[in-house]
């Protein structure tokens, strides 16, 4: 088991810089997620950690030891790829035993280890199967088993669930989490799915355009995004420019009380998540708030997304409050503690 530290990592293909100034530290036995949209450079970073790509600059440390110059086969790191990439000419058990065999483990030892890992990944009885006779979920579990059986210091997973359908994906997340908490293998899990990242990770790093935008606990990134772009990536909306002065944020919507530390009157951006806005149907229920009219709705199952026109500004709200009709008069309440004022104005909308 080991810790993984990436220091000032920069990686480029040919002359195109893909990753820059990347820093990340993952503690022993931790489950960390690297989140980012497609093309952000996630796979590139994993390949560098695995040793399949040489970084242009920076250090990769496992248990405090720089491994930059070690080839992949000498690093205590195993990678699970986006596609299962099973060896087509081997059966399930042979696939799983591959790494052990390459390492020189005897056949008795291999058999014991494989049967244990088959059980752990819920593949009992499938050891003799041809890999092309497996379902997509089973194939990906074999790929996982093939990596886990080596008990690496660091396990890398590159969007291992993105080829599976939604139900199976949920099941696999639970499985990976339970295995990870049992084996305590330091894991870096890559995904483009923010909800997957939030639910799986103890630590979360958001990568946008090859740069680390924010790292922290899932709660940090979700509730305390560093900038509007991070907030937007996690489904945030409602960005307003204004001035913070004496506990009040003055913007086009009016004077909103906030619980943020008092500002100095410089232009800043504030946001409130759509589900944090409280929507009431009439003034009688609760006085105050902002009056508005429903202009658009979208039913999303557990909640309804509604766009409310307040004066000339549109506010997006996610509410469980019954059915809304177009043109309906409603009132919006902004709980002061839910309004996040960003440190300095970075919003370039």
């Amino acid at each position: 088991m080991g810790s993984l530290v990436l220091k000032d990592l920069a990686i480029h293909y040919d002359r195109q810089v893909v990753v820059e100034d990347f820093n990340l530290a993952i503690g022993e036995g931790e489950m960390a997620a690297l989140l980012g949209p497609s093309g952000a450079g996630k796979t590139t970073i994993l390949k560098a950690v695995a040793g399949l790509l040489a970084p242009t600059r920076g250090d990769i440390l496992i248990d405090g030891r720089a491994v930059n110059t070690l080839p992949p086969e000498k690093r205590d790191v195993v990678m699970v790829f986006q596609k299962p990439l099973l060896f087509p000419f081997m059966n399930v058990a042979q696939n799983i035993a591959f790494g052990l065999k390459m390492r020189g483990d005897g056949s008795e030892r291999r058999r014991t280890a494989v049967s244990r890992i088959l059980e752990l990944t819920r593949l009992e009885g499938l050891g003799g199967r041809k890999v092309h006779a497996l379902s997509g979920g089973q194939q990906q579990r074999v790929a996982l088993a093939r990596a886990l059986v080596l008990e690496p210091a660091v396990l890398l997973m590159d969007e291992p669930l993105s080829n599976l359908d939604a139900n199976l994906r949920q099941e696999m997340r639970e499985l990976i989490l339970s295995i990870q908490s049992e084996l305590k293998i330091t894991t870096l899990f890559v995904t483009h799915d923010q909800s997957e990242a939030l639910m799986m990770a103890q630590r979360l790093a958001l990568l946008l355009g090859g740069r680390l935008r924010q790292a922290g606990t899932p709660q940090d990134l979700f509730h305390r995004p560093a900038d509007p772009e991070v907030a937007r990536f996690f489904g945030g909306g409602n960005f307003f420019k204004g001035r913070l002065q004496g506990g009040v944020f003055e913007c086009a919507l009016g004077r909103l009380p906030v619980s943020a530390a008092s500002g100095n009157g410089h232009v800043r951006t504030a946001t409130i998540r759509p589900e944090d806005i409280q929507l009431t149907l009439d003034a009688a229920g609760r006085p105050g708030g902002l009056a508005g009219r429903v202009v658009r709705t979208r039913f999303e199952g557990t909640a309804t997304r509604a766009w409310i026109e307040c004066d000339v500004h549109e506010v997006m709200v996610l509410t469980a409050a019954g059915e809304l009709t177009l043109g309906q008069e409603v009132r919006l309440h902004f709980p002061p503690e839910k309004i996040r004022v960003f440190p300095e104005d970075k919003a370039s909308e």
Partner: peptide, 30 residues
């Protein structure tokens, strides 16, 4: 189409250059 990815897998699964040739490249090409 198939070989390069499998070779990468082999490398992360600790196969040496000769082992990759013997256990991955040859069977893939066969």
């Amino acid at each position: 189409n198939t070989g390069r990815d499998l070779i990468d897998v082999g490398r992360t699964l600790k196969a040496s250059a000769w082992q990759r040739f013997r256990h991955i490249t040859l069977p893939t090409l066969f």
